[in-house]
Design a protein around this nucleic acid. Structure first.
Lengths: 203, 203
DNA sequence: GTCTATAATTCGATAGAC
DNA sequence: GTCTATCGAATTATAGAC
């Protein structure tokens, strides 16, 4: 049985509260109560509320960048890089759902400087996703689409995963989730021999 | 030229600030400065900060429910109801991007009672979307999928639209956006197999 | 590490004059 | 409708004893 340090318990409690009440809606008092001690003790575990936000936010950002960089540097064909991208998002969503919730919802609360850096990193990540899609469109494995729309559509398709994990705490099959989502995304932008969007329905 | 009342200007200024800085991150002073008057005057336009949040939130929630209720009550086939659902989301995202941003991101800041009502309404909306998908799966026009996953995937595919509208202020073609997104979503979950009755996928 | 006490600031909201 | 002035409460963070 893995020993969970009080540090880790503190971080988990804070992240869960941020998820439930939002970053600004969560007070140091809330966290202290979750830890069963007084407010002042919070500062034994963190430097400041802002530092806690920044640490978690950029930590998960780095995880995503590291993951997609490996994918981009691989010899997989573009459509299989896209599969790997989806797998990456599922894996991280299962492992760090509350960090991703923070990353998705609370970046607006960063200070002016760090916020700029965050937006920069997020923009670069989207650019890397777009690169995968662009290569797929070029080699014909992905359907012709507006690259910006395709990028947002793909990222949106995986952006809800963290909530699936926090809501159904382990009460789901990640393998099946992966399969279903793969089918949804790939089937959506893969260049199918079946032009099902050319709507000819029989009535 | 449409006359814009100061009330409307106030609401627009507040919503934009909520979008940029978050609800709790926006102070009455921020709004007052955007309106070029002092803080106390804010309360000539609203009852309270909470009331402003609740009003906008439930207003847009009602719009979505009204829209999907018409779709559900129509005689469209399920797959075309899905098309209409996507059109509904695009239309509302173009018309009320900042209200939808609030609805998506700031519902956690509702009071305990109103928050419960919000979650209830959102859950009912998801249920209505699931109904459309379920009918489509039943009649064979949509691929066999886990209904919960399919519902989240479809809703996620349209959830980023408001940001597309706020970021590219009118600098985009809504018709083309609609076409592209349609192709992505419909192509993703439409049954690409033969339009016959075999609903069991052979792998 | 935990406590009590408190500093320093901010914020939502109201009162009342003009 | 707009202003000045202000109240009361909440919040982040620190000081210092145990």
């Amino acid at each position: 049985m893995p020993t969970i340090s009080k540090q880790e318990k503190f971080l988990a409690a804070a992240l869960q509260l941020f998820h439930e009440k939002g970053f600004k809606g969560t007070t140091m008092k809330d966290i202290a109560e979750a830890m069963n001690f007084e407010v002042a003790n919070v500062y034994n575990y963190i430097e400041s509320k802002q530092a806690l936000l920044e640490g978690s936010l950029f930590s998960i950002s780095k995880q995503f960048h590291t993951g997609i960089d490996f994918i981009l540097a691989s010899t997989y064909a573009p459509i299989d890089q896209l599969r790997e991208l989806i797998r990456l998002h599922i894996r991280l969503s299962v492992q760090y759902p509350y960090e991703i919730a923070l990353h998705t919802n609370e970046w607006r609360n960063l200070g002016a400087e760090t916020r700029q850096q965050f937006v920069q990193e997020r923009s670069e990540y989207e650019q890397k996703v777009a690169t995968i899609l662009e290569r797929g469109i070029t080699d014909g494995s992905l359907r012709q689409m507006d690259l910006g729309i395709a990028t947002q559509a793909v990222l949106s398709a995986v952006r809800w995963l963290y909530r699936w994990c926090t809501d159904n705490q382990g009460q789901f099959n990640p393998i099946e989730l992966e399969k279903q989502l793969m089918e949804f995304v790939i089937g959506g932008i893969a260049n199918s021999a079946h032009p099902s969007m050319d709507d000819k329905r029989a009535e």
